[in-house]
Amino acid sequence: MAKIVLKREKPLNGYSKVINKIEIAEYKFDSLISLAIPLKRERKCKLNFKNSLGEPMPSIENSIISKSGILGFRIGLDLLFICNPSHSSFAKKTVPLLKQAFYITDQTGGWCGVEVDGDRVIEMLERICPLNLSQKIFAIGDVKRTIMDHLNVIIFRETEKKFILFSPSSSSGSFLKSIETSSRNI
């Protein structure tokens, strides 16, 4: 039995900074998995989702937060993401339950989360985000996938002025720089 211990490293090493009163911080999660809905199995999946997480399966571009703080959102016709901040029984209990209906892909290492929070967040996001951020179009709890500064980004609105941005982990340094530049430029 090997005695080597591998240290787990977050893509941004727990980065946190305030620029122009915008709080920018790495959004830490324990695991991030995607759920694919098998062909013509939407009904079964809905039931399973409710049983597994205690909340109804969200519709496209909507999200749920479970009682234990698990964030679930639907990004397409047959694709959902489950982001689990710290819930310890998730891997042992919830994932096996979900597996009964969904195809599951672990993407924990694939994404980097960045929280942005503050009164000037919209002004900052205007510099990189092509989406309409008006609450009439992009309500609290909505989630959309788009392109920001050449990068694929999933953007989730937590409150009026707080968003979580998920971008691919390999380019997370470039994306953080985009956010920092945007925050400085307003």
Partner: peptide, 15 residues
């Protein structure tokens, strides 16, 4: 379109 197949890019997920 009638096949049950799902594709996810996991290039960034695995070292």
């Amino acid at each position: 379109p009638n096949l049950d197949v799902h594709l996810i890019s996991t290039t960034d997920s695995w070292a």
